[in-house]
Design a protein around this nucleic acid. Structure first.
Lengths: 347, 347
DNA sequence: ATGAACAATGACAGCGCTATCACTGTCAAG
DNA sequence: CTTGACAGTGATAGCGCTGTCATTGTTCAT
């Protein structure tokens, strides 16, 4: 196919020859400019520019025994929740010396452990892992790692190293309390995939319902299927068919909530008067719907940003005062739960 | 913070010592097992297992002058369109020897060029770039690269190397024709961000309207802002305020389409009878809405899968018969454009 | 004047692996 | 019984960079 085989790689010693110094001086000029005299530095910079030198990361890593790679382990690249997070992570890291290396655990603890093992062997500068449900061996590996590690998305009292997140249990509990305050009484729960975080949300919701004497297990609908808008519609439809007396539903996430809303529109179930809907995550789109959807804001952008800042500081040796940052979460009340106050302007 | 400093790295020579062979034999046993006798291979495998040996990728890369890294350059990690694509890419590559290294061009041609330069210097096994709008220097770099390169998302007659995508112009043209066939006459266009692909969609749409003598520039609404559901609602609202006679709208993507639908619901504009809506990309959620939204299916999952298969084959030396794969695109007609046939079941 | 302290630069070894070539033994063909 | 082919294994030399220590000059307090 005529793909050219030749491509002269410019190495450090080419730059050194061009600027008439030793390789180590070029190396220093690039990494610790203040340790090299101004005239040399200028000559070297000019040579780098002229030759189009780009460092060989493999050689750097091998010689220095460390990299500028920050490994990020997330369960899914498709989920909207993680794309918001990722976008904040990339933004925070761009224009620093660090690079992101993303990996996908597919919600599997063993896959996660395997990936951690691979990552650690490449001596990353730092590691970001999702959640608190690592395998014992994985926790062990991470706590013995000689780089900072940060767990995101959740908080718990026993961080491996550092942590930025919020309590899914509490967030869902707030949502349940909100529905109760708004006057709903027969409150259902719809959940999909049922990974550990999803489960803790369910528990948070059900515990509040229980405390108010409103827990009705028959109004709880869960599935192992992957969450989607269509699934939300189907699950709400099935739940309403079985229990026409349902008067509100808390869904595990906003995709399900949106699906539930669509199904209500299709069946001419009045939201919020006949049925209240509360989602989770506060994705961009739930503010736009008609009626707009109440949801729990989980500040994923801030989470990504804080996590990367803490991690990069730790890599630089600046350990945080608090190892666990709890970002909390807030119910954003909108039209879908504004019972009897249909005219309220959204937010 | 008591993070352990010690972590014995197991190297090839540890494995060699353990199994009583030379390092090169271990190296071969791992990479080309058939070139090593069965008994040795078993001893070596056992030693690898016992010691928990994990290869050092930096050393491998440095010594062999190539890596198993496939670089993937996409404009945005947040956009739903790219998350579908990414998910297919990760799935296709998992359980092969290749690893994905993702980078983010932020819709910037110069950022893309910079990233290509960095990638190429790390001698990737292959490279995936988005679209056909690289800078001249970037095209030059890529065509001189000594690894296969595949452009995705779009097709054009002059691939740098290989290509998998579809014509955005044609896809949008099909959408416009669909609206005309359905009897709409005052058809508007709503577009956001207006990157090159978005622009070609606009051109495809407008050229058809023009051919039918229906082009009205006053019904075209575009913005540089980032696309979102809320933006779609706002833009549709503004367009309808200005031109109440609008009877259909083609939006650049499904986020905008969904926003437009919500705005119609808010204003009690009957969709599809008073206003037809057609989106682009056929995201999962547009099938769920009420009414369901007509959209253009762009087969992103298949695109990601085909692209990675072609790329990996090319890396292995199996060049494809056709260098350009056009996946085409299809209008998926749903309720939002089913004028006068409101009762039609949605797909 | 003297040496201590320090800034600026370089020589050299080696990170962990693989490419290359050399070596040994086995076996079939002549 | 030689020869050549070949399968199986090893010795050696780097890949491109950085850590470490050595060397040179300069400045400053004594």
């Amino acid at each position: 196919m005529g793909r050219s085989r030749t491509r002269a790689r410019v190495t450090l010693s080419d730059v050194a020859a061009e600027s008439g110094v030793s390789t180590i001086t070029v190396s220093r000029a690039l990494r610790e400019p203040h340790r090299v005299s101004a005239p040399l530095r200028e000559r070297i910079d000019a040579a780098v520019e002229a030759l189009g030198y780009v460092p060989n990361l493999a050689a750097q890593a091998l010689a220095s025994q460390h990299t500028n790679v920050i490994g990020v382990l997330i369960p899914s690249v498709t989920n909207n929740v993680f794309s918001d997070l990722l976008s904040a992570i990339y933004d925070t890291v761009s224009h620093t010396r660090f690079q992101i290396q993303l990996a996908n655990t597919q919600y599997s603890v063993s896959e996660e452990e395997k990936l951690v093992r691979i990552f650690l062997n490449q001596r990353p500068a730092g590691l970001v892992v999702t959640g608190i449900d690592q395998s014992a061996a994985c926790r062990q590996l991470l706590s013995e790692a000689n780089c900072p590690v940060i767990q995101i998305m959740e908080t718990a009292p026993d961080p491996i190293d550092m942590m930025v997140g919020f309590s899914h249990y509490d967030g869902a509990a707030r949502a349940a309390r909100h529905l109760i305050e708004k006057g709903y009484r027969r409150i259902g729960f719809i959940g999909a995939r049922m990974d550990p975080r999803t489960q803790r949300r369910m528990e948070g919701c059900l515990s509040v319902l229980d405390a108010f004497g409103m827990l009705d297990r028959d109004l709880v609908s869960t599935t192992e299927e992957i969450s989607s808008v269509n699934l939300g519609a189907a699950m709400l439809g099935a739940l309403v068919d079985r229990r026409p007396d349902l008067d509100a539903v808390f869904t595990n996430n906003d995709d399900l909530a949106l699906g539930a809303l669509f199904e209500c529109q299709r069946r001419a179930i009045a939201v919020p008067d006949a049925l209240g809907i509360c989602g989770f995550n506060d994705l961009e789109m739930v503010r736009a719907s008609a009626p707009s959807l109440t949801s729990v804001d989980t500040r994923r952008g801030e989470m990504g940003q804080r996590a990367m800042t803490m991690l990069m500081d730790a890599i630089e040796g600046k350990r945080p005062q608090k190892r666990v940052v709890d970002l909390s979460s807030t119910v954003i009340a909108r039209q879908s739960t504004a019972r009897g106050t249909r005219d309220d302007p959204a937010r």
